[in-house]
């Protein structure tokens, strides 16, 4: 991903030992992003933004931060002051801790991109006086400033550091140092996103998932069709080169030469069929067992009522 941020070393206010890495890597999981997008729609009257806590994990040396989830924290902006609902914040944190005991606060988010005195005050609330541990601040920008309409969401990540004598005097001055981040999503999440992207083109913004059929197999079948179409396009181009109708691009040719040995023929079609069928049988067996257990539980519940 192209980034205009330079990140060679972390700010010197962050604790580091001789052996710890000098950079901070931030990874964002899509579940956290979805929660933040959803949060951006719940802005309270009188406030300029929605804020919330970022949950996740950090490595022992604080060089790797993984943002996995997020929740809204109520706040109130008034004049030069901001009030954060600490009770609401701690209650939600305890609920999350019950399901994932190892999860921790790694930062906070705001649904506006600008950084102002409120950002500094809220950041101080999350820092709790400890500048040596990096607290990530994630800003979401989902409104186009020229038209004031929703636009493609853009988000930035920062870590805070001190300015002047702020640490000594406990002032509310802060420097937000931009740091790069990466988005991390699994293949299952990618499948889900492909259904979401299909829904966005529909007039009612929804798409019906096929019932009674495996979505994985449908996705696989669609992917194979896409590959087939792409091969048709490429073959057409190569045929034109072979017939002398156009001049071939060597870079394209070398890329194709590099990748075409990876044909499914290498494994053997019969072997693929065998592997595929045995995998399907395993899946079916698991589904059958799960269904049997569910029936037994339901039966046992009914018998208990009768007895």
């Amino acid at each position: 991903m192209k980034s205009d941020i330079l990140h060679l070393v972390k700010p010197s206010s962050l604790a580091s030992t001789a052996l710890s890495p000098l950079t901070v890597n931030v990874v964002i999981q899509p579940t956290a992003l979805f929660s933040i997008f959803e949060a951006s729609l719940r802005i309270q009257e009188g406030n300029s933004r929605v804020i919330g806590t970022l949950l996740g994990s950090r490595s022992d040396d604080n060089s790797n931060i993984d943002i996995r989830d997020a929740y809204i924290v109520q706040h109130n902006e008034q004049g030069d002051n901001v009030t954060v609902n600490e009770y609401n914040h701690k209650t939600f944190l305890n609920i999350y801790k019950k399901t994932s005991p190892k999860i921790m606060i790694v930062g906070w988010f705001s649904t506006i991109s600008s950084l102002d005195i409120y950002s500094s005050l809220i950041n101080n609330f999350y820092l709790d006086g400890n500048y040596s541990i990096p607290i990530v601040h994630l800003t979401l920008d989902s409104i186009d400033p020229s038209s004031n309409l929703p636009s493609v969401p853009k988000f930035d990540t920062y870590i805070s550091t001190m300015v002047g004598k702020s640490a000594v005097n406990d002032q509310n001055s802060t420097v937000f140092v931009p740091i790069p981040h990466t988005l991390n999503y699994s293949s299952q999440e990618k499948n889900l996103l492909s259904w979401v992207s299909k829904a966005k083109d529909q007039s009612n913004s929804s798409v019906l998932l096929p019932s009674g059929q495996s979505t994985e197999l449908i996705n696989l079948s669609n992917d194979l069709k896409d590959v087939d179409d792409l091969i048709d396009k490429v073959s057409n181009y190569v045929s034109q080169v072979v017939n002398g109708e156009i001049e071939g691009d060597d870079e394209v040719g070398k890329y194709l030469l590099s990748n075409i040995p990876a044909s499914p023929n290498n494994l053997g079609i019969s072997k693929i069929e065998h592997l595929f069928n045995s995998h399907i049988q395993d899946t079916l067996m698991l589904e059958y067992l799960a269904s049997s257990i569910k029936t037994q539980i339901e039966l046992s519940a009914k018998l208990t009522t009768v007895v």
Binding site: I231, D232, V238, V242, G253, S263, N265
Partner: peptide
């Protein structure tokens, strides 16, 4: 390349 692409197509 064209020959290999045809093989790919039938395999797919």
């Amino acid at each position: 390349i064209l020959h290999s692409l045809n093989n790919w197509k039938s395999s797919i």
